[in-house]
Write a protein that binds this DNA or RNA. Sequence first.
DNA 1: TGCCTCGGTGACAGCGCTGTCACATCACGT
DNA 2: ACGTGATGTGACAGCGCTGTCACCGAGGCA
Lengths: 346, 346
Amino acid sequence: MGSVTLDDVAAHAGVSAKTVSRVANGERSVREETRRRVLRAIEQLGYRPNLLARGLSGSHAYTIGLVYDNPNAYYIIAMQQGALAACDDLNFGLQIRPCNSMASGLAGELRDFAQRMRLSGLVLTTPVSERTASLRRLRTYRIPFVRIISAARDPRDEFPCVYVNDRDAAYAITTHLLQLGHVRIGFLRGGKNHHASAERFRGYRNALHDYSVPLRDELVVEGDYIFDDGFRGARRLLDLAEPPTAIFGCNDEIAAGALAAAQSTGLSVPYDVSIAGFEDSPFSRHSWPPLTTARQRADVIVERATRMLIARIRGEQVANQGFNPELVVRGSTAPPRPRSRQRNRR
Amino acid sequence: MGSVTLDDVAAHAGVSAKTVSRVANGERSVREETRRRVLRAIEQLGYRPNLLARGLSGSHAYTIGLVYDNPNAYYIIAMQQGALAACDDLNFGLQIRPCNSMASGLAGELRDFAQRMRLSGLVLTTPVSERTASLRRLRTYRIPFVRIISAARDPRDEFPCVYVNDRDAAYAITTHLLQLGHVRIGFLRGGKNHHASAERFRGYRNALHDYSVPLRDELVVEGDYIFDDGFRGARRLLDLAEPPTAIFGCNDEIAAGALAAAQSTGLSVPYDVSIAGFEDSPFSRHSWPPLTTARQRADVIVERATRMLIARIRGEQVANQGFNPELVVRGSTAPPRPRSRQRNRR
DNA sequence: TGCCTCGGTGACAGCGCTGTCACATCACGT
DNA sequence: ACGTGATGTGACAGCGCTGTCACCGAGGCA
């Protein structure tokens, strides 16, 4: 195999394998001089611990699992980056796991995933993190996890979590549109299973209410977190007898769909209609005009969750932490065009 | 731990642990009746093999590594999906590994990655797959790998590979533009370290040559595979005294940047300028107008490479396989506007 | 001086599998 | 009747680590 083992290092340094193990794992109960000798031997031989052996032998594998169920590539990559950053830093491995959050055997599937690799714990992202019944089961299997959820404040509930305040961020976006003078504001909802989607809608509704603007059912369209639903939903809104002057898409992909829909109808954004998204994904930065949105750092959020998880695995107590997405105003929103000057569609 | 082991199953079925192992691994040297008895026991106890133990004990871990160095999220996700599909199907695990392909210690880093987990092999994607010196080193470590590269035909070289014919696909796109009547065709190059970028340029050049259109240096702009370089590069082209009537971006993200640049200048696509990309990523489908591009199924390509790798690990002989991206004509390309009617910029 | 504590170290037994080899059994041909 | 080879099965020794416990010597205290 050619690969160097603990025993090789032990022989080279003139100590026992166990002592090398102690040094490799940074335990402090080793005399300074011994430690140096071992470190030199490790260096000279180019020793790398075999992670399988460590995992098999120890109580856990120093590896965590990242679980997601999401169609959004940017989101996934950002989450993976965040998890990797934390894992690399803390010397843990990472296993990724796409799954179907609506599957009935979810808890069992996650248990298998964790037990087969002796995973140290799981980071559960939305919407998997919202299947509380499954999570309760998971906990009985004694598998540590941290979940990322959408909540306006610390839920202080039974599960440790990182929470993202989608509601207030959606409130901020809606307020931004109201202050520009928009009154008819369309809302394109995202994934029904996503609690975040409901929270964003709540923010939209609250803002309308606080500005005494009636909520009109015809301006709210259901859909999924995908471009095509944004396109179709926006077309439907723009075809109304009295179309909205602004459209708020539940995420950037939906908003990009709405943008394309407006442009395909010959409308100019933001002059004829304003469009806002949510996420600050490349979709919003790389469209023309770039989209007003709410910046949500999925990488930072997941990194935080990963660090929390590892801290818990190490037996430390950690408090839940919240994140507030931040309003980012770009070129896709502007005051509504005065009614009289509204230009005809091509 | 609560998790069921081989011995538990063996006791329950009244056979030896080794026999259970044989059944679990689908070896055929087990009597049909014994197999059934063992399978029933596995079922009843809910046995799942521990992958760490299997990997530690066996000659390899039935897990492959996917190595990439790419800024393009869609591309990465597509590749991961392809690799996962093959791994799930063939009962292998998957480890992902972003890395810096230009790092000097690349071979050593990959060896560590593989040896620490006893990985069965690696799938190397561009541009990591192009660092042939490192690959030669990797081979001396006896780590199996399959690489994905850009080549117009089977290289039949020292390393097994899946090859993608970028050159002919770029030729097809350029020809498409030429046949529409374009003569001044801008080309936005991508990543200098990417062989694919050079191949695409070659296809562009060959097409111009075959149509007796001179290659003009001022119409070729260097850049990276990112939106911003597409934007800047296109701005530069459009600001020329004699701007191109069509722009070919080396991938969809670059093309999306070019599209935004055109729109930001007040030009209408495709009426004032045609734009084409490469990849068929969501960027091309979800812009307005949608981009003419070359469909390249990264998921299918990586799945194929993964299957090849696993076949080789199993000792089978496998031939290299090639893929031809396919021209997809969408709304972003059209005949050039007659010179006289060219409309002024806003 | 004797007793106890404690930091530092090593011996040893697994973790849950697979590779290897030996052995039992059976059908077949002589 | 016997050997021969194919077939099915089990015993056993690891894979390379870590958890546990035992041990040794130095220092503190009575």
